[in-house]
Design a binder for these strands. Structure first.
Length: 487
RNA sequence: GGUCCUAUCGACUAACGGUUAGGUCACCAGCCUUUCACGCUGGCAGUGGGGGUUCGAAUCCCCCUAGGAUCACCA
């Protein structure tokens, strides 16, 4: 059988990380089996139309490295790939069900349905549609129903779930699932505006697009019996199902927009690296070996195994994501980092630096940060002379005699022709041996005078980056301030 | 409340009847070191409970408990 899978999001205006994981697994599965991965937009809810939502979706998926074999932008032979343009299909198959007596008209208003649910709640038990007590073509009779429709009354079409028996289906991840028919609701198939609900549209489209495997989130598991029944009603083959474990927040509830970031673009904006993010998402619910964390997209494809995906939900841990990002940041080619860092520096009004200089800054700081965006702030002393000096650091490292100890070294440094990491290092080392002081005794005061803070890259690298003239000037300024008692 | 799903360190996971239950994040300690990081080494920490099946159970079955999802003219 040809593998054909689809990612079928509704255009809500953003791509949820759970959606990205679903799209990714569909993609990995298709690639692994040499099949096709399809993108279908499910926009049957007219009330939720969002401008540019589809473009946003596609753009974010593309960023993640997920390319579809068939989509709105790349039509295959099973289009259209957006449900609002497949309207007639759903009408046709809704009608077919009506003719087969596997569906019926219902005229209940939302108030009447509300009242029914309230009543059912009082009685205890389920809240499913009470077919025999409501206003529909079963209680009213076909003729009366047609009269109402002719008179212009609003109606929906509901599926007629058998009263006896049970629905069974195989889930690749969970095994066999069974649900008694009496617990399956008479789902609305066609709404009063004539548009289909997800359930009808999804089944019809999956059938005609020849989808072989339905890979989606676990939230769809409870409605899958309805879908299976629909396949049976139509006499169509049922695809294989795989319901992915939910992505959870710290409280172990479904990750939702209410708490923190869930949109892929939020993570992008924060500066997460594409490969790191995708790697992390891929490992939520599955790990190919258990003794490795870093995998390329190609490795994920080669190793992907749907049947080994976890059943239990996975908590989305930002700390591990941060670690993952750092791992990728360390390996990021400097040429790719430079434009990003340059833009970040511009946000801090640092401009006019040579690419080569920015590259050196990145090299020195990539192992000290999670995001490139953190670099400008922690390297501000490279661009402007420090005016504040960490008091704790000063108290700890600047003693009575420090000025006198440091002056001879500064004098020697100022004589240096070549001011590089090696030359300053060699000179300082020789000086320390000669003067019989430990390197640390001088390194800290130098750092204090030059940067004002206690952390940063190696001192000799830092000096080389600041340059001889600026270094000497900062030493002198600091010493003068010390002498005048300003600091 | 009905239905369905789920249950290995705090978190992500490996072990698909036989391992001293492994790896990673986080945390702690040490090493490295001119600081901060990185890195390295070590440590803490887990099969929810009870019954079965079996020579042997994290793994298979049942019950309990706990969590979650779902029950819209949303997807």
């Amino acid at each position: 059988m040809d593998v054909r899978v689809r990612f079928a999001p509704s255009p809500t205006g953003y791509l949820h990380v759970g959606g990205l994981r679903t799209a990714l697994y569909n993609y990995l599965f298709a690639k692994k089996h040499g099949g096709k991965c399809i993108l279908r937009i499910e926009d049957t809810d007219r009330t939720r139309f969002v401008e540019n939502a589809t473009e946003n979706l596609i753009e974010n998926l593309r960023w993640a490295g997920i390319e579809f074999d068939e989509s709105l932008e790349k039509e295959g032979e099973f289009g259209p790939y957006i449900q609002s343009e497949r309207f007639d299909l759903y009408t046709k198959y809704g009608k077919e069900l009506l003719e087969k007596d596997l569906a019926y008209y219902a005229f209940d208003t939302s108030e009447e349905l509300e009242a029914m649910r309230e009543r059912l709640k009082q009685e205890g038990g389920s809240f499913k549609y009470d077919r025999n007590k409501m206003r529909n073509s079963i209680t009213l009779g076909k003729e009366e129903a047609e009269k109402l429709i002719a008179a212009g009354e609003d109606y929906v079409i509901r599926m007629k779930v058998p009263e006896e028996g049970e629905v069974r289906f195989k889930d690749i991840i969970r095994g066999e699932v069974k649900v008694p028919c009496k617990d399956v609701d008479d789902q609305i198939l066609l709404k009063s505006d004539g548009f289909p609900t997800y359930h009808l549209a999804n089944v019809v489209d999956d059938h005609f697009m020849q989808i072989s495997h339905v890979i989606r989130g676990e939230e769809w598991l409870p409605s899958t019996p309805k879908h299976v029944l629909l396949y049976q009603f139509f006499g169509w083959d049922t695809p294989d199902f795989a319901h992915l474990p939910l992505l959870l927040n710290e409280k172990k509830a479904k990750l939702s927009k209410r708490h923190g970031d869930v949109a892929v673009e939020d993570f992008r904006a924060k500066g997460y690296l594409r490969d790191a993010f995708v790697n992390f998402i891929a490992l939520l619910g599955w790990n190919p070996t258990g003794d490795r964390e870093i995998y390329s997209m190609q490795e994920l494809i080669d190793l992907f195994d749907l049947s080994k995906v976890n059943k239990a939900g996975a908590v989305f841990d930002l700390k591990k994501l941060a670690w993952m990002n750092q791992q990728y940041l360390k390996e990021l080619p400097t040429s790719e980092a430079v434009p990003v860092l340059k833009a970040e520096l511009e946000k801090h009004e640092v401009t006019g630096l040579e690419d080569n200089y920015i590259a050196q800054v990145f090299e020195l700081f990539k192992e000290r940060v999670t995001f490139i965006s953190e670099i400008p702030e922690m390297t501000s002393y490279l661009y402007t002379e420090p005016t504040e000096f960490d008091e704790k650091y000063m108290a700890k490292r600047w003693k009575e005699d420090t000025a006198d100890m440091v002056k001879p070294l500064i004098e020697k440094l100022s004589q240096l022709e070549e001011f590089t990491h090696d030359s300053t290092h060699d000179l300082t080392k020789a000086h320390c041996e000669e003067a019989d002081v430990k390197m640390g005794q001088l390194m800290h005061p130098l750092r204090l005078m030059l940067t004002g803070i206690s952390s940063g890259a190696g001192m000799f690298d830092t000096m080389a980056l600041i340059g001889k003239d600026r270094c000497i000037k900062r030493f002198e300024t600091f010493l003068a301030k010390k002498e005048s008692g300003e600091i």
